[in-house]
Simulated assay, not measured.
Amino acid sequence: MLKKLVAGLCFVLPSRPTRFLYRLCGHRIGRNVRIPALTFVHAENMTIGNDVTIRRFVYIHVRKLSLGANTIVSYGSQIKGEAGFSCQDNCFLGIHCLIHCLDNVSLGFYSGLGPRCTVYTHGSFLPVTMGYPAKFAPVVMEDHVWIAMEVTVMPGAHIERNCIINPGVVVQGRIRTNSILHIDPKQYGVHDLGRLQKLSKKDTSYWHHQIISAFLSSQSASYQHDAGAASYSVPGRYTFISRPEMNVIELHIGKGRILYDLDLLCADESRRLIHKKFLAFIRLRHGLTLRTRYG
């Protein structure tokens, strides 16, 4: 919390006091680092090398941040997520780049992203319970990789050293060393989404278990799972109960009960913090956006 408060204070301060305050927090900040006012940079563990320049209107909020020497992060870029971002020396991020770090993102030596590039480590929005795909995986860009403007890098992409990705390309999978990628209109294809959904769809009880257990793990909660009662209890705090026959998940807190209807995509109204966290988690991780059912 202290480090985040310092980051908020540094938002209105010039580079010199910002460097001083970050060092007081235990961050490793090199010489001649430029972090001007109107820039927000926060990480629990931060290492910034010599001569790094972070422009105005940049927003960085990750768990672990490592910027190699002589790196430039240009105006309006965002790097955010629950995992880490790292780059080696001489890297470059063009204006208005968007990097989502729900898993780790790394750039090698002398690599860069052109303007308006997007890097995703997660791919989910539509409900996985209906067979829609969801993927979460780190992204790796090795040494001497240049990604030109408006390229989208998908979860799990790994670009080996000495590659150029031309504008507009969507990068997936592993790109071998010494490759140049560009858009070829002849290679566009159409796939059967309905068939994919049928192949991907799993039993309701499977998804309930995945959703509840993953959420509790994300909260670092020690819980007891009773398979017979389909319950997941965090002693003294709350209990989730799976009702696969109705496709409903229940959250019991004390004498209260909150219902999450995954067929109707709605949930009971509640101001409980754990309820809000659960809604945010299943929306991000499982593509389940639930409307509030007001009583």
Score class of each variant (00 low, 15 high):
K3P: 06
K4M: 15
G8D: 03
C10R: 08
F11M: 01
P17I: 11
T18H: 05
F20I: 14
H27Q: 05
N32A: 02
V33W: 12
R34Y: 04
R34Q: 11
P36G: 00
A37M: 08
L38V: 03
M46L: 05
M46S: 09
I48A: 13
G49E: 11
N50S: 02
N50P: 08
N50M: 03
I54D: 09
R56D: 06
F57Y: 13
I60P: 13
R63K: 12
L65D: 12
L67S: 08
T71D: 10
G81S: 02
G84Y: 11
C87A: 02
C91Q: 04
I95M: 06
C97L: 01
L102E: 14
N104V: 14
S106I: 12
L107I: 07
Y110D: 14
S111T: 09
G112E: 01
T118E: 09
T118H: 13
S124A: 15
L126V: 00
L126R: 00
P127D: 08
V128S: 00
Y132G: 00
Y132S: 07
A134Y: 11
K135L: 14
F136I: 00
A137L: 07
P138A: 03
V140H: 01
M141L: 15
E142V: 06
D143Q: 05
V145L: 04
I147W: 00
A148R: 11
V151S: 03
V153A: 02
M154S: 01
M154R: 04
P155R: 00
P155W: 00
A157T: 00
A157P: 01
C163I: 07
G168W: 02
V169D: 00
V171M: 04
V171W: 07
G173P: 11
I175C: 06
I175S: 07
I180V: 15
L181Q: 08
L181A: 08
P185F: 06
Q187G: 00
Y188A: 14
H191V: 07
G194V: 05
G194C: 13
Q197T: 07
K198I: 07
D203K: 15
D203N: 09
Y206D: 10
H209D: 13
I212V: 11
S213N: 07
L216A: 10
S220K: 13
S220P: 07
Q224R: 14
A230Y: 08
S233I: 01
V234F: 14
G236W: 12
Y238V: 11
F240C: 08
P244C: 15
N247F: 10
E250H: 15
L251C: 15
G256R: 09
R257A: 12
R257N: 08
L259Y: 02
D261M: 06
D263T: 15
L264G: 12
C266V: 14
D268Q: 12
R272Y: 09
K276T: 04
K276Y: 12
K276R: 13
L279R: 11
F281H: 08
I282P: 14
R285D: 05
G287M: 05
T289R: 10
